[in-house]
Design a protein around this nucleic acid. Sequence first.
DNA 1: ATTAGTAGTATACAAAAGGTTAGCGGTAAC
DNA 2: GTTACCGCTAACCTTTTGTATACTACTAAT
Lengths: 118, 118
Amino acid sequence: MSKAQRLTQGECSARLTSIGDALYVIGGKWKLRVIVALREGSKRFNEIQRAVDGISARVLSSELKELELNGFVTRIVHAQTPVVVEYQITAYADTLGDVLTSLSEWGTRHRDKLRNER
Amino acid sequence: MSKAQRLTQGECSARLTSIGDALYVIGGKWKLRVIVALREGSKRFNEIQRAVDGISARVLSSELKELELNGFVTRIVHAQTPVVVEYQITAYADTLGDVLTSLSEWGTRHRDKLRNER
DNA sequence: ATTAGTAGTATACAAAAGGTTAGCGGTAAC
DNA sequence: GTTACCGCTAACCTTTTGTATACTACTAAT
């Protein structure tokens, strides 16, 4: 569990850079959500769009390209008719496990807190 | 450590909402960085601006207002001349400990990975 | 008297992110 | 033949985010 500990100046600026590095690739409104959706199993384009509520095709398309470029997602084209395209998360995306767990646990507690405040 | 485990459909959509809830309040380019900066200890406006590289006064001002509204930061005005304003993180901001730790650890490993790839 | 530091706000503008709509070429069902 | 699904993409528009500059009002140092 987290203790309310002070950080030293060095630890603080080290954290600032490492968190900056992390946010650079997985920051933004959609990236983590797409990764979570794909953790359930590989999905096709429209399946992802249905799973991630509110994302438009245009934005999903560009997010998937970035995620592929950064090695989080693999794009597999099955040359059938009609063409089926499958998106799969990579082993590297699995290293985000702790981040996703802590973030989702915090989100749950936060929602509880908001509910109790009303 | 994180295992490459599959999520069930229920777990997946629960995660999608809780991560959505979390990103709603701490998402964006600056919020987490400001919180990290203040974990070192209370700071004044200009001190925060110097600690968080690249943030402008206008953006810092609006981020601090939002953080105060959401209960992450307390604004303390010392009525001296000149006026000194101190920003302090709250106990609630400390519940983000695990999130910040996992994110900064991942960021460090990510940077290492990028360095080794070149 | 000028310069710098205190904590911001006002204004104007630029860039980035995201949303909306329409459409392509194909298949397959009604 | 019309509709609908597949996997997108181009064009256009709005919203969000950020940047730059100037300014307030006061203090302290040079």
